[in-house]
Simulated scan of single mutants.
Amino acid sequence: MSTTDTSVIHDIRDVARVAGVSIGTVSNVLNRPHMVADTTRERVEEVIARTGFVRNASARHLRQGRTRTIGLVVQDVMNPFFTEVARAAEDAATDSGYLLYLCNSAGSPEKEAAYLRALVEQQVSGVLLTPLQEIPAVMNTLRARGTPVVLVDRASEQPDQCSTAVDDVHGGDLAASHLLSIGRRRIAFISSTWSIRQCADRRAGVRRALRRARLSVRDHLRELVVPEMMTPAAGEQAVEDLLAEGLPDGIFCANDVLALGVLRGLLRHGVKVPQDVALIGYDDIEIAAASPVALSSVRQPTAAVSRRAGELLLEECDRPAEHRHQQLVFMPELVIRESTGGHG
């Protein structure tokens, strides 16, 4: 094959022959281009571009035992909060030359575990995980194999594991304190099961705010538990349940998706928001400000939480000897709009 013959380009050796360089030089162009002289690198890149050569990543991954990929397992890809998580994590990955596999557990512990096992089989370099409830056992299997796992939106209890989380107790306190500050004394907290850490923490925050105001939890708080997937339909059903026993004058929902369903149910029944019932959600997803009555919410710094988690994971993947584990906690903030009497 001559140096101008491009009829058969099967592997890196063919690229080397066509470009008239060594195999090692082609390898450097592909993996360490800064080590190759500009004219030589440009000649090799021209051959690669002209021939459409694609290197065999599978063989390289088998030799290295890892890939330039990471996995992200989220609880509910339909929830805009997790969409933002995925977007920020992907930004961190691509900035470091990694690809991201997005896996949706859809509220199923079995599906979550299956995805984690599949990521092991794909030899990903690391995993970002927003766990459903208890930490899945397969996560420890991953870590035992040397695959880093960083928890997102969940504090790790292990000092040798990174995590990024939000102080949800403070967030629940912010929401309840705001309702109390505008004179609401019959408060409903609508959430999913308390086995979900975020829900339990937000509940603890609500109770803390009531106790600080010297109000009885028993007399001033009603707690409704909806299915684990906090959907608009679950919010609408919660309104039916509340109407059956008498509406409160303030409602706090554990996420905005649930709150938007509650808002729709209240408006359908002719309940005025915020005049009759003040309503506040959690997450401050983009649509919260654009709802029929602009929704007050507790804003999580979602992009920062997710991007920092991605950066910590990639640091551990690329520089394990230098990496220092961190458990980072971010603070939420209150955003007041029309649904609690603000001006949106």
Rank of each mutant, 00 (worst) to 15 (best):
G281A: 11
E236K: 13
D11T: 05
S58L: 11
D283M: 06
V21T: 12
T40W: 08
D76A: 05
V277Y: 10
D241K: 14
S7V: 01
S195K: 12
E223S: 12
G146C: 06
H178A: 10
L328A: 11
S125W: 03
L260N: 09
T40H: 11
F189T: 05
D173I: 01
A303E: 10
Q122D: 06
L151G: 04
R55P: 00
V8D: 13
R264Y: 02
A238R: 07
V124Q: 08
L174C: 08
R32K: 15
A244L: 13
R143A: 08
V73G: 08
L224F: 03
V262Q: 15
R87P: 02
V239D: 14
G281T: 06
Q326M: 07
L116C: 05
S216G: 12
E286M: 04
A89C: 15
V15C: 10
H10Y: 04
M139G: 08
L100R: 14
S7L: 09
S191F: 00
A176Q: 04
D284C: 05
D167E: 11
R32N: 14
A244F: 02
Q133I: 01
F53S: 14
C199F: 00
G265Q: 09
N104A: 14
P274R: 12
R222I: 02
R202Y: 02
L151E: 04
V29M: 09
V150S: 08
G20P: 05
T4L: 14
L72C: 11
V335L: 13
I12F: 09
A309P: 01
D95M: 11
S7M: 07
L295S: 09
Q123N: 13
D11F: 06
P301T: 14
L314Q: 06
S27A: 07
S297C: 06
R197E: 08
S58Q: 11
T94E: 13
S27N: 06
L312W: 03
I182E: 09
A86R: 06
R50F: 00
S2V: 02
R154Y: 02
V18L: 13
S108L: 04
G281Q: 10
C199W: 00
V124S: 06
E110K: 15
V138G: 09
M35P: 00
V206R: 07
L313T: 04
E245F: 02
Q275P: 00
A118F: 00
A113R: 12
S22H: 12
M35W: 08
I9E: 10
Q133V: 02
V73S: 09
G65M: 12
H170I: 03
I23M: 08
S163C: 03
T302G: 09
